[in-house]
Design a protein around this nucleic acid. Structure first.
Length: 273
DNA sequence: AAAAGCCCCTGGATGC
DNA sequence: TGCATCCAGGGGCTTT
């Protein structure tokens, strides 16, 4: 589910509401991808000072401490303001953070998601999850010359390099296919065999497509909703993702589907070289 | 160092 | 209707 746009849309949908709140109680249901890393009672009484995002991780900054939230493939968060009615816990609800401002709940059927506590960003547990991440594509630090240089060092298929997240973060399976289409690059092409001019174009369209997706509230393929329960609209704008056999909007040839690294890739064989 | 596979898990869609 | 198979927004870990 959640790539950078969905995670960012989720963040914006509850960050202001929960900022400044005091944690009353943390509840964990079935095990997620990793253990929380502390006793749930450890965070009780702490204040949530801010909610930020790094790649596809949401970071709840506590005073003191840090809760790293990852939505995996099927996770979503829901925020219920204090006093508002909320549904009973369901089979797939595996985390709740009760605060003075309301309750933040994680629903994650597949349980690839995670909630991990660290003492701070320099804590080993945070470094392990965040330390290797590449640059943020929507920040000023996403510099075109650095991007081109980094891609020129990699021999793997360019789509896999995008997904790996160590050059640039947040580009997942949907937006990798979309960006490569917009840049006219075949997903299987070795990154170091892509002409610099096309890499520069790729740099531009990564920013463009991610920003567009954020503006549209993300992609809702099956079940994505932000923390206010609203779904996204980007999927209606996708040029290639999930369009196998349908005509390319540019040249009318049928969009192709293939598998790279156990993930589906969509592309136009005519527009992408 | 980098690349390629392997899993973790559940549910929905599809096919026989 | 029932059962088997395939597929799904991720990514750390292990092996080459």
């Amino acid at each position: 589910m959640p790539e950078l746009p969905e995670v960012e849309v989720t963040r914006r949908s509850f960050a202001d509401a929960i900022q400044g709140a005091t944690i009353a109680h943390l509840w964990m249901g079935k095990p997620l991808r990793w253990p929380l890393g502390c006793a749930p009672s450890v965070v009780a009484g702490r204040v949530i000072t801010n909610v930020t995002r790094r790649g596809k991780y949401l970071l709840l900054h506590l005073n003191p401490g840090l809760l790293m939230v990852h939505l995996g493939m099927s996770g979503s968060l829901a925020f219920s303001p204090a006093g508002a009615a909320r549904t009973a816990l369901g089979t797939h609800d595996h985390f709740e953070l009760h605060t003075s401002a309301g309750v933040l709940r994680l629903t994650d059927p597949r349980r690839f998601g995670a909630i991990v506590y660290a003492d701070g960003l320099s804590d080993a547990r945070a470094v392990k999850l965040l330390g290797h991440l590449g640059v943020e594509p929507l920040d000023d630090g996403f510099e075109v010359d650095d991007f081109v240089a980094a891609m020129r060092m990699r021999r793997a298929p360019i789509k896999q390099v995008l997904l790996a997240g160590d050059v640039v973060v947040g580009v997942g399976n949907i937006y990798a296919s979309e960006a490569l289409f917009l840049a006219g690059i075949r997903p299987t092409r070795a990154a170091n065999r892509v002409a610099p001019a096309r890499l520069r174009r790729l740099h531009a369209v990564i920013k463009q497509v991610l920003q567009q997706a954020v503006d549209l509230g993300g992609s809702t393929l099956k079940d994505f909703k932000n923390a206010q329960g609203e779904h996204g609209l980007f999927q209606t704008q996708s040029r290639v993702y999930d369009r196998a056999g349908e005509p390319c909007y540019v040249c009318q040839s049928p969009i192709k589907r293939m598998v790279q690294g156990q993930r589906a890739t969509y592309y136009c064989a005519s527009c992408q070289k």
